[in-house]
Design a binder for these strands. Structure first.
Lengths: 188, 188
DNA sequence: CAAATTTCTTAAACTACCTTATTTTTTTTG
DNA sequence: CAAAAAAAATAAGGTAGTTTAAGAAATTTG
């Protein structure tokens, strides 16, 4: 639980005892490489905090083509928040790209924490806000950069990610074909 | 203030007296067509709720090209939230596309409301969450749809907006040139 | 309401990125 | 560690979207 505690305290102040109460609501789970953690049209009963490993969140478009929306690694949260919060069926798929160990929290416990621990309300509010801002920036980048520029930014912004994730998946995240990414890489 | 009250009550429950307290913190302002409400590198001291009119939020990319990020109309909030919340300099420009009347709230009053009125905390939390979800969906659409599909979706999702806003601005929002949008429109 | 300005349209040449197909390299699995 | 499977590279031909430029239509302004 140390990793989660540290992450929470990097964002808000909270006493040891309340932090303990908070952490007690999480369960440790491990997913094998390639295992699906969530698939569309299922209920999203949990969200997860990664202790180790890496997952991708993706959708299928109308032509059945996969598109990676985000990658998540150590000390990041992931889950279909939209469906978790609104109690709707999942619209995302989530798959482990490596063996991945997480701390999971159920919606029941999530709601309990929101009621019982005001610091958790602050914590999640700030998390969501930051997510909103990073989404905003991604929209910006998609509007104003070419594929090549987006790739260079990706390398700069996530140098460790680009080592761990296959080009196929990076291409999908950038919105281009693996073949075109391969060509960009050769150029330089 | 009726419009703002209605909007707040469509999202959370709040007593008449506290709603009154809340609304008292806003000031009415009017901006002329083409007037800039915010420009990059200024301080974002306020965010706004639109009573009437329409604004666009945009950036310049590295080549000096404008890109529209969002349009906002009646009963929507707008502002550079990122800079408002984090007290950093604005990274967005905001311009009125029509004569626009708004209710504005200063950061000082915003912070006061967060402290004094718990319902306001809930209200803004839900607003931010919804913004996050709609950003998520926009990223999705940019990844999986062609320009033509994005245009059709725009027409469907915002039928009244497409009447009020010039094609030039719509093209910029969709991430294409006005010439190409014009060509798409001719096709059907 | 005429002149000036901005927006929209059209069209041809061009480029970024896609498709398809084949080969090579890397990773996974029994 | 060999066989099978998946990922990456290469290349040719195709298409979605851009650029440039010029004229037509609409809007703004004096």
């Amino acid at each position: 639980m140390r990793q989660l505690s540290d992450h929470i305290r990097s964002i808000i102040a909270i006493s040891d005892s309340r932090l303990q109460l908070l952490c007690d609501k999480f369960d440790k789970n491990t997913f094998a490489k390639k295992e699906h953690i969530l698939q569309t049209k299922n209920n999203t009963s949990e969200v997860h905090f990664i202790l180790s490993g890496c997952v991708r969140t993706y959708i299928y478009d109308l032509n059945g083509v996969e598109h990676n929306i985000t990658f998540s690694i150590e000390n990041w949260w992931f889950g279909d928040l939209q469906s978790f919060i609104n109690k709707t069926l999942a619209s995302f798929n989530i798959q482990a790209l490596e063996e991945t160990t997480v701390l999971s929290i159920s919606r029941k416990n999530w709601d309990k924490l929101l009621k019982e621990i005001p610091e958790f309300v602050d914590y999640t509010r700030i998390l969501f806000r930051n997510t909103m801002f990073s989404h905003e920036n991604r929209i910006l980048q998609n509007l104003s950069y070419t594929a090549e520029e987006r790739y260079r930014h990706f390398l700069q912004d996530y140098p460790n990610l680009s080592q761990r994730i296959s080009q196929k998946h990076i291409a999908s995240y950038l919105g281009i074909t693996p073949e075109f990414l391969s060509m960009l890489r050769r150029k330089k």
